[in-house]
Each structure stands twice: as structure tokens, then as C-alpha cells.
Design a protein around this nucleic acid. Sequence first.
RNA 1: CGGGGCGUAGCGCAGCCCGGUAGCGCACCUGCUUUGGGAGCAGGAUGUCGGAGGUUCAAAUCCUCUCGCCCCGACCA
Length: 577
Amino acid sequence: MKTSQLLIPTLREDPGEAETVSHRLMLRAGLIRKTAAGIYTYLPLGLRVIRKIEGIIREEMNRAGAQELLMPIASPAELWKETGRWDHYGKELLRFKDRHDRDFCLGPTHEEVITDLFRREVRSYRQLPLNFYQIQTKFRDEIRPRFGLMRGREFIMKDAYSFDADEAGARASYQKMYDAYTRIFTRCGLTFRAVEADTGLIGGDVSHEFMVLAATGEATVAYTEEGSYAANLERAEILPPADADDAPFQPLTAVSTPRCRTVEEVTSFLHVLPRQLVKTLIYKAENEPVAVLIRGDHELNEVKLARLLRVMDVQLADPETVLRLTKAPVGFAGPIGLSGVRILADHAIAGMRNVVVGGNREDTHYVNANLGRDFTVDRFADLRNAQAGDPSPRGDGPLVLAKGIEVGQVFLLGTKYSKSMNATILDDQGKERFAVMGCYGIGVGRTAAAAIEQNHDEKGIIWPFPIAPFHVHLLPVTQSSKTAEATARLYETLQEGGFEVLWDDRDERAGVKFNDADLIGAPFQIVVGDKGLADGVVEVKIRRTGTKSRVSPSDILAHLGKAVPNKAAPESPRPRS
RNA sequence: CGGGGCGUAGCGCAGCCCGGUAGCGCACCUGCUUUGGGAGCAGGAUGUCGGAGGUUCAAAUCCUCUCGCCCCGACCA
């Protein structure tokens, strides 16, 4: 393609609205433009990248035995009411009415639609297993869209849904998808990790997230260096500590702590370490208040709390509730004498002695409080976030934390949707059974953004070969007819050799072309100019390394062929579960 | 939804505090020169100052309301 025939509006300056590298570079390199908050138009160059990623996904999904179909963007409220998600999904579900006043929504995901199709069309276990996928635009009305394609409201997603006759079959389908995902992200040239994950709103029993490791990631991953354990921070299990403090009980004493509300304020006022304090957090779980005890230097994990309480979500109680329960303003809650509310505690609390707790009175804390003697706990559980250095639940070393971008997630759903929507098949005994399902998503645009986060320098993007919008950027830098002819010949040769070539035929100065080429990030740049042609060569620059070599045009295909990374997909490892 | 900030030319911004001629850089158009890492000179075009109301002789500037966007948090897969 010639540059003059494509809209590639590169920007010399950083757009004010972009913070992260991928967002900034996608705007600057002319890949996308914003249409509304969290809603983007893909320009020709950006769309080429999207199509490349989709192509890799299609190949691997088909290879794994999935079949492509396409579901509608709009779906009727009735289906969502069957599973209860019309009420539970919240404001992320964009609802609207048609001209007949019927309720519809824009699909944020498609379990309901595919399960409806399945129950209408599939009767027998003999037709299973089945796996359907689509690559399609989703809409989730995010509270705060950000970082360009990383978290948009409208975004392109590959979603797949597997149906099996039994649990074992479903696990096999899950494993196939896990393996396919590993191949897909490897082929996209990404450094990633599959981690154990929570199932969230989608529901289900088992889930892995595929995380591209990058500093700008929104999620935190906990893993061991040896690599046998990896989990999303919100999921990472923490074993009860083996060691307990066995110091003798000291007498309980109330102390005045004027205006000391936070752990930081209380501990520095009393000259103790945060790990000697127990904070008491009052939460609301579906309007039922609950008190949670957490060590001062630990962080409560709301996902774990919600799972323990078997509720959709939990939130910190409002100041009025805290005042009613503890008879003190926020900041002074403690377990001693606290009544009318269940008291939960993180495992770490069990082994602590002579701790600082809130006094349930304004400006008052207790020191030397002790479990058993001064207060009781209704239930101990794993309720905190993992920290770097915590022991792995598999006993294989300390956990390391890293930031990651979630580009894909696989769920073993079980019968959650087939039950609520009555999607049954007949088994080999002629008996009706609920189909056992799995669902599998990949954020296509987010994968492109993640690739940029991982592959860039101060000049611009450095595309991995398989998802680059073009393989070769052809840059004539002198005006002579000799250069023009050599460029045209090279363009033909390269295309015949199977390379996708972007030919910068603009009447621009060399510097402009060089800078745009570095920004756009094709793996190879070929500079054609009188200087080189006088010696019978053109200059090939490898974008990633900056290495330049002088190559005779007749050797160009052989030269590039050597430099192209092996395109074959690697063997996929098994999940660690 | 809470906190902070920003809407002025296609893009990046100044002007606003202290009311009185709307400006700078880049991009764009014309001409000449130039042409291997974001060219030079000369000339030119481009704005309902986000919108509505108000105060005032006079509003980009002050006041009120409103819309949009960005950042932090809450939230979310």
C-alpha cells in the first residue's frame, strides 16, 4: 500500500488526553481516534492490527475444534431475566427500549444468547462436545473508561462457549481452550502468564486469566519464581501462618488516642508497628453488617470476603452504621464489647498477642488486647490480599507480585446457565441432563494495546512481526528517477515475496519519513536513496534493534527471510492447577 | 457516585487573577529555494473562545446553570 492512499494521521506531539504508552502511541501513530468516551474508531492502520490478531485467534480456535458464528449485538431482556442478570448485572448493562417499548440491551457478553440457541437446536449427547465462538463488538457501560483500547466501553472481543454432556467433558473443553489461548498469545509475540482467577459476575467454578506482564497493568499477579503457582491477587490464597506469638498476656489497658483514626496515626502515636495492631472494618454484605479483623499492615480482600459470605458484593459500611454498631465515629471500631454483629477475622489474627485495637469510643484504643480473654471471633478465614514475600499456597517459595494486563480469561461455568435457562440434552440412558458449559474471552483491542505496552521505545511502537500492520516500511529518501525506479521494483519484489509493504510515497523530507516509520513500528524499514544506489545497495533497518545493513536489492528477500522470526506456533504447556 | 482539573484554529497551548483589538508553535494553502533524521524565506486561510442565561457601556475573562472530556478514588472482568 502507498501511504498516499491511506489515512495515517500521525501526530508529532503527544495528545493531551492520553496517559499510558499504548494509548498515546495508538493516537500518535494514527491507529485510532476517539469518537466518545471509551468509544473509538479504528483507522486503517489500527484495523490492520486488529485483523491480524483476529486472524491468529481464528486459526487457533478452529484448530481447537471451535466453530465460528455471529450473534446479535442487541438482545432481548427476556433472556437476561431468565438468568437473573437483567437485575444483577448493574449499570454496566446498557439498556434501551425499541419502538414497541420492549426492553433490550447491548450485549456485554453472550452466555444467555448462546444458551438460548443451544437449547433450541441441540438435543442429544451425541452432538457434543460443541464449542461456538464469535469475534464481535461488545458494549459494557464502564464507570470510568480509560487508557484508550485498554478499557473502553465498546470493544472487540472474541468469546467462545463450550457445551459438554458431563463434567469430565467440560474439563477437556476447558483444557483445549487453555492450550489454544497459550498458543494465541505466544503467536502474538507477548510475554504473559496464565493465572488462577476469580469468576466474578460470570460465575462458575474454575477460571484462569491470561495476563500480559506490563507495568501499566490494572491487575496484580502473585506468582512464585519457580513458576508452579500464579494467581490474580484477588484470588491468591494465603495459608494460615504456622508460627504464633506466645508472649504472655499483658493487662488490657484503655489509652487515649486523640484524633488517631488511621493505622498510621494510631501506630505512630503509640510507637508500635502496624503489625501489632488489629484493624476492625465494618462492612455491609447485602445490608447485613459484619465486622472484619485484619492485621494493621495487611489489606482486606473484598472478593474473598464476598465469597466467604456468599454474596454478590460487599462494601464498607457508611458512617451512620458504624456509629450505631460501635457507638463511636469511624476510626475507633474494635472487637472488644462489640455486639449485634458477626465478627470475622483473617487467619493472621489467631496468632497475635497483646495487640492494639479500637476502643469503640471516640479517641480511645486498647493496648494488650488478646483473643479469647478480651474478645472472640465467630470465624477465621483467608481474608487478606497477598503481599510480596508471603508463602505460596503450594509451598514452593515466596510470592512475587507483578502488574499485568488481562487479555483473556477462561471459565469453567458448570451448569449455572444451563440450569437457569433449562438447556438440557439426553444422555446415553435417555435421561435429561443439563449441559456443562465453559466460556472463554479474549479482548482483541486490549491485546493490541498490551503488545504496545510490551514493545515500544522512545521513538514509537515496535510491532511483533505477526501482528504488525505492515511487515516492511519502504522509504525512498531522494527524488531522483533512479530512486523512484528502484523503490517501485523493490515494492513488487517484496510483495511477490509475501511481505506486506507500506510504501511512503509522500513528498516529505527524509527525517519526517524516518520518524513516522519509527513511530508506526513496522519490523523492517528499507531506505532507498541515491547514496546507497550508487553502491548498488539499499539500507535495511531492523526496528527493534536499530541494526542497519546494506543489502543489494536482488538479495532483499533472502536477507529479510533470515531476519523474520519463526512463525510456527509453539507447543502449549498444561495449566498448573 | 466523591475529590481534583480542563474545554480558546486540525493538534499542543498562552491569554482569564486585574473585563476593552483573540494570540503563539506545529499542521494546512500559494510561490521560490531546499531535500539521507521532524527545512528556510515570503505570502495566505482558519475561531459561534463547549453551550445557555446573567452582571456590565463592554465578557474568552466576573456570576449562575448546563454539557463534554481528563486524572485520582470508589467500581468492574
